[in-house]
């Protein structure tokens, strides 16, 4: 028996999520904002795995959370590929990756 409970993992996950959210709001570099979004996805994954681990019983193994994390990882990989391609296309057109300078829709 160990003293690390579900709450500990949930606190780590919520802190990781808020750090990622903080980064997305604070930073102006699109690439770093994208990295912080990955951190937020990771936090959600951690919470899902922790919930399905601590609620599992021999009768009901609670695999759904784990399978969902599997899908989230796959979709996140596709998202990173697409997002970075968009950033490259953006950089070719506007020669910047700072969100401050991407104001074409504003004018």
């Amino acid at each position: 028996m160990f003293a690390i409970a579900l709450n500990h993992y949930l606190i780590v996950a919520s802190l990781l999520f808020s750090i990622g959210f903080f980064g997305v709001m604070l930073r102006r570099n699109v690439i770093v904002m994208f990295m912080c979004m990955e951190l937020m996805l990771n936090a959600a994954n951690l919470a899902l795995v922790a919930f399905s681990r601590f609620n599992a019983t021999p009768d009901h193994p609670m695999m759904d959370g784990n399978v969902f994390v599997f899908f989230v990882i796959t979709v996140a990989a596709a998202e990173v590929a697409t997002g970075l391609a968009i950033i490259v296309a953006l950089f070719r057109k506007r020669a910047t990756v700072m969100a401050d300078e991407l104001t074409a829709l504003k004018k």
Binding site: F2, L6, A56, P61
Partner: peptide, 9 residues
């Protein structure tokens, strides 16, 4: 909670 159950994952 303390995770005592088996982990099928």
């Amino acid at each position: 909670q303390v995770g005592e159950a088996v982990a099928p994952a």
